[in-house]
Design a protein around this nucleic acid. Structure first.
Lengths: 220, 220, 220, 220
DNA sequence: CATGAATGAGGGTTCATTCAT
DNA sequence: CATGAATGAACCCTCATTCAT
């Protein structure tokens, strides 16, 4: 009758907040690794060190847990972004720092890209029903806006740059080589690695900064 | 995006090649729409207008069919790329055309992005075991190489640009806003649409062309 | 039929007898509404306004609770029957009154029919192991016996009538149209309602009284 | 790799109609024995000698199977009723025969009472959505109508008897002692058995026939 | 070449029951 | 006396896969 108890949670038993957090963390890992339909509730329970019914007690069902995990992805990524301070850098350096930060951030928190890819693959059904993601996300956008303002004020940057579009450029160049790492490695034999990405970020920063500079731009 | 079951099959029964192609086509649709674990063999059979055992006869099992569909994604996308002719444009215009072509190509063949996202989500296990993807790889790369050569020869472009990196830049700016369309719409209220993407491609082309031009770009 | 959770519990917490009664009442409702396997311990706890472990503390397990609820069904129905006084009516009127009372009693306490149907569906396993049901059994039987005695003494009723059989006739005509109300409504479009049942009871009383009267009834 | 196959269906394999019938039969048994929530799909599959998925292939889900089983209860009971021929008996004898037939029918096909009790316990939700039960059911009603017509024509029976109400009386007296057999045995120590029921049917027939006779009835 | 029929092995979810406080 | 937290054991249902024709 005495049954062995998963040791990992020995110290966390009967602690709802810890249990909830453990499940959420496990879910984020599982969903980001294998996607929504690939995820197994059993595996999430095992990863969290809880029994399956706990998941249903705390989150309702698999879909609700997925939604919570998606939201958690944004919450966690924002926490990383909070640490970013660009105010002391001049605009150009700030842009460069931002590109590097984004690249590192994506690289060091791979579940973020994976989670968002999963969600986009599913058509965004879930995120559309999350009520506070817009607010949660993204400090980056405010950083971008501020940099553009300063750059423009100092005459360094052109005017007419939309912060969202700029952010999308930055995110694009960081996202693609990480998200598509495996196919790029095979198809183009691209030697993607932390070092390669750093070098790539350098070039991307050059490109973006060049685009922002006032001067002989707009030729469309 | 077309979900119609090909009526084509009605009159061509007992034609192995047509059957095989129908299955492959259906598999590509299904896998790209719902991912690997989300895909259902039943649904693929229904879409192809064949019975399930046919699938096993022709392809072995679900994983093999997935591999074939992944390969087919590259084959089909290459067919689109074959139509591209940039030789008559000057290097800058060629780059711009390439950016626009890529954007349109991704937009008009959404299963390509979806399929590759699926594969990358799975860690690239499958593509690593496909023996000829590198060969059937994007002709775009050759186009890029040729443009760079011409641009460099004419003194317009800098030297030292790696065609793979340039292609990755081009692909990045086209890929991200389409792949992440749903989350971007919600999180940044980005009004992504065919028009928005065209405008975005214009700006991206500006940025990339600027980066390629010879001159005293600060590189570090 | 009342589903409200008794607010009664709020101020009487920590009163074992009240808690026990609340659980029993809730169990009777739940079991009679959805049967033994349909009943949910959670729901019983919620209806009773107690926590689940209380149920196990007070009653042991679901089966024991079911047994207690079954016994309670008899206890409660008897309490209703206690109010019946037929001594002042002449035998015929007493029989009629008994039929109407039974019909009303079944109609107003629907959980009784439902509970007994549930138990019979289960093969009577539980009731066989209840040690005192026979004692708390229907006082109706005693009423029937007394009526028969008086009717026979006055020469109005035949002799040789078994009280149990008579009671079974009375119960039969009242039970069936209520118990089978839903199927009768659909299959025979029988417009069963309180009014219909009253009229039906009248006819049933005629039939039964006619059967009891002394005279030259052909008995086969 | 060679696996033993349930011998019971060895000869019925790959025969959809037989498989379907076997499942339906098994379902009728299971549902009537343990009710809707007590029924186990596994057990139905085992009883039918098929694998679980077959049940879902043939019937959809548990509820649909339950609906089919309920309908089947009526279909089967009607088949028994078809054998009944009362035309050659005089009206009184016909009524007596009908009572006995009904009693025997309920006794010999116990799943009918059990199935209908289950359905009524569930509030008739299912039968209301069955579109052809009214038509299926019940030859008995036509028999009753015909007997009443003949009895009335010959001056033997009163007029004003509703066939549905008469049928309900007949069904009532047959239904109750069988349906409530287990509780009656315990609570009233009623020695219910085939013999007891036959004798009971005799008395019930007397009672009903007495009620139908023209003469000093209507005294309400 | 082709398919309707069938199934083993899970997958998500619920439920009676118990533990720790 | 009382309960929130937790779980093993099912239960309904689905899915990739195979068999028999």
């Amino acid at each position: 009758m005495a049954k062995a108890v998963s040791p990992i949670r020995k110290d966390r038993k009967r602690n709802p907040e810890v249990t909830r957090a453990a499940i959420l963390h496990a879910a984020l890992e599982e969903f980001s690794e294998v996607g929504h339909s690939g995820a197994r509730v059993d595996r999430i329970a095992a990863r969290a060190g809880v029994s399956k019914p706990m998941i249903y007690d705390y989150f309702g069902d698999k879909d609700a847990l997925y939604a919570a995990a998606l939201r958690e992805a944004y919450v966690q990524i924002r926490q990383g972004e909070m640490t970013l301070d660009l105010d002391r850098l001049d605009p150009e350096e700030a842009v460069r720092a931002l590109v590097h930060f984004t690249m590192n951030h994506f690289w060091n928190n791979p579940w973020f890209i994976r989670m968002l890819n999963t969600e986009n693959l599913m058509g965004g059904e879930t995120i559309r029903n999350l009520d506070d993601v817009t607010e949660i996300q993204s400090v980056l956008l405010r950083r971008v806006t501020e940099i553009l303002r300063r750059g423009n004020a100092s005459g360094l940057f052109r005017s007419g740059i939309d912060p969202v579009e700029l952010y999308i450029f930055i995110a694009s160049v960081c996202w693609f080589p990480i998200s598509n790492m495996h196919t790029l490695k095979v198809v183009f034999r691209a030697p993607i690695s932390a070092e390669w990405l750093t070098a790539h970020a350098d070039k991307a920063a050059d490109m973006i900064v060049g685009y922002l500079r006032s001067g002989d731009e707009a030729e469309g």
